[in-house]
Each structure stands twice: as structure tokens, then as C-alpha cells.
Simulated assay, not measured.
Amino acid sequence: MHCNLQTMTIIKTLQEAVRQAMTKDDPDEVLMAFISRIGAFLGAEKAFLFDDTPIHFYCWTAGGMAYDTKRIIQKDARKRLRSWFKAMARQGDPVLIADTASCPDLAPAMKKSMRSSSIHSLAAIGISMPGNRVGALSLENIPPDAMGRADELLRLTGSFILMLLRNRDHIYQLRNNRFIDQMTGVSNRNALDAYQQHINSQVSMGVLFADINNLKETNDKQGHASGDRLICDTALVLLKQRQGGEVFRIGGDEFVIIWQHIEEQKFYRVCCQIRRKFSVQGLNIALGQHWVPEAGESIAPILQAADKHMYEEKRRYHERQGIRD
């Protein structure tokens, strides 16, 4: 009867955790809400969700929920953890360690890593993900009398976490599609609009506008496939030469690169390198650049100044070629 009651309590806790999580709009908040509920239920000091990448991990502490972006896992330690979690995922059973210091199944390097992270006891389960990826939920320093509950809960939790992770990845993909230019792979105008909402107004900024000369002529004489290749070649040069700048395609043949916190000398040097690269590759591109020591509250004037310089260069090119606008 006790076992049945415990199982019912755990199932009810999982259902409540999913309900609570799904009230959140952001997929990261969904995962945080879920693991916080699990961690609190077991009385853990910390609940840590690992997602097979250095940037996707979530950490809840008993002192309050926090998205732990500062818990850096070194490359060697991450490889060991991945191997360990992958073996866990294959066997499908939780790993329960009442005392990490005396556990005979832990390698010395793993014990040292856990000791340095103040992990004295551990309950964890690995999660197999599509594409040979690995996920894992780890509950750190739970009370000894909660180990039995942790075992049963973790056996039921894996499928819920996998569902939430896949839902997050799907949302990320939809977001990326909204902000990525499908032809070139660079950011699009939607991304530029979003980017402008998060600039640092107190740091320097440089903007480079690039506009393809004679794209219409290329389309008319060689076909749109050639015009598309010209657009993609232009984007590729900008991506390879950007040196930390953000590249956006804002029109059919128009691109812009924005650098924040860049020195004036470096900005103009990078612009010259881009110009030389276009010339070497035989790409006829009009460029306009503008740099300011502080971005200010709106980057619109900076964009307009660079755009104006670009159109002046395009006008001079048309005059030399005898082309009427």
C-alpha cells in the first residue's frame, strides 16, 4: 500500500510539474519550472538539466530559481560527463549515489570533479535524444531518505523531459526561421529590427552597407539562378570577413553589417579588407560605411549615414558606366 501511495504521489507531482511548466511562454522557462518542481519535491540542493551542448543547461537551487549561465563545464569534464550520461541513457536506469566520496563505481577524476563542485550525493538519469544527442537530469545533495523516491521519480521523468526538450528545439527552429534569410543563411530584416532593441547605447558602433551593382542585369542576361549565386557569394564574403560583426540581408541585393564596441581604426581596416575581398573575387559591390564613438538611443541615424555613403558610391559607379537610375 505504501508503494502504491508513493507511486501515486510521484505521478501527481509529475503531472503538477508539467502543468506548472506549461503555463510559461518561453521554452527555457518551461524547463526551469519543471526541474524546480522536481528539485523541491525531493529536497535537493540543486537540480541540474544537461542538454549535450555547452550553452544549453539549466540549474535550479533550493535558494531560488536561477538560469545558471555561469556554471562553465570544462571541455575535458564535459566529455567525461557526456560519456557517463550516454551510458546512463543506454541502460535506462537512474544512478543513485548516496556518498560520492566513497562510491566504488566513480572514477577518481569524476570524484575529484564532484568534490570540487560540492556534490556529496547524487541522483541522475540519462536521456537519449534524436541525432545521437544526450540529455540528463541530475539532482544534487538530496536527503538520504529521499533516495527511494528519487529512483522511482527519475524512471518516470525521462519521457517528460524529452518531450519538453523537443518542444523547446521546435520553438527555437521556428524562431530561427523567422529571423534567418533562407537563401543566404544570414540574418534578415526581422532580425535587424529585433537587434536594434538591444543595442548598448554607450559603446562605439560601425555600420557597413553593401549593395550589389547590376543584379538586375545579371538576372536579365544570365537568369535568376546566376543572380541568386551572386547574392549568396556576396553574403559569404561578408560572413567570412565580418570579424565579429552581425550580418543582415535587408533587401534583394542589400546587406548591412553592424559592429558594436569596435575601435574606429579597426572598423575602417575591416571595411577595406571586405572591399579588397570583393575586388579579388570579381564581385561588383557598392559600399558605404559610418562609425560613431557612441551608438546613442537610436541607430537609425548611423544606418542612414552609411546608406547615404553607399548610394553616393553607387551613383558614381553609374555615372562612370553611363547608367541612368
Rank of each mutant, 00 (worst) to 15 (best):
Q265H: 15
G244W: 06
H224Y: 14
C271S: 12
D233M: 11
Q289V: 10
K266P: 00
D211R: 06
F248W: 02
R276F: 09
V270C: 04
G206P: 09
K216N: 12
D228N: 15
G206R: 06
H261W: 00
D253A: 13
I258R: 03
I285R: 00
K277F: 00
W291H: 13
R275A: 14
F278N: 08
S279F: 10
V207S: 01
S204D: 08
Q289W: 01
Q222F: 08
T218Q: 07
K266V: 06
I285F: 09
V270L: 11
D211V: 10
T234V: 12
L287K: 06
L230R: 07
M205A: 14
H261R: 15
Q273V: 11
T218K: 06
F278C: 12
I285C: 02
R229D: 15
I257T: 05
L236P: 01
C272M: 13
D253Q: 07
I262V: 15
K216M: 03
R276W: 13
L208I: 04
F248M: 02
G227D: 06
D233A: 13
L238I: 08
C232V: 14
L287S: 10
I285W: 02
D211A: 11
N214G: 04
G245Y: 01
G223I: 08
I285Y: 00
R275Q: 15
Q222W: 10
E217C: 01
V203A: 04
W259P: 05
L287D: 10
V237W: 01
I258G: 01
N219E: 13
C272H: 15
H290E: 12
V237L: 04
L230T: 08
I262Y: 07
W259V: 06
C272V: 07
Q222E: 15
M205F: 07
A286K: 02
E254M: 10
Q241F: 06
C271V: 15
L215Q: 13
L283S: 09
D211I: 12
K277M: 14
I274H: 00
D253V: 13
S226Q: 14
R249G: 03
C232H: 12
T234I: 05
E254C: 01
E254Q: 14
A225V: 14
E217L: 13
D228P: 14
V247H: 04
V280I: 13
H290I: 04
C272T: 14
T218P: 00
L236K: 15
N219F: 09
H261T: 12
E217D: 11
I258A: 02
C232L: 04
R276K: 15
Q289Y: 07
S204L: 12
E254R: 10
C271W: 00
V280T: 12
R249M: 09
I274N: 03
V237H: 02
R269G: 05
L208A: 01
Q265I: 02
L287I: 03
F248T: 02
D233S: 14
E264M: 11
K221I: 08
R229S: 11
D253K: 02
I258S: 01
V247M: 10
S204K: 03
F255H: 08
G252A: 06
G206D: 03
K266C: 03
A235H: 04
S204H: 06
C272P: 06
R269M: 01
Q222N: 13
Q260A: 12
D233I: 00
D233T: 05
M205N: 05
V237T: 10
F209Q: 10
K240P: 01
L230K: 06
T234L: 09
L230V: 11
Q260M: 12
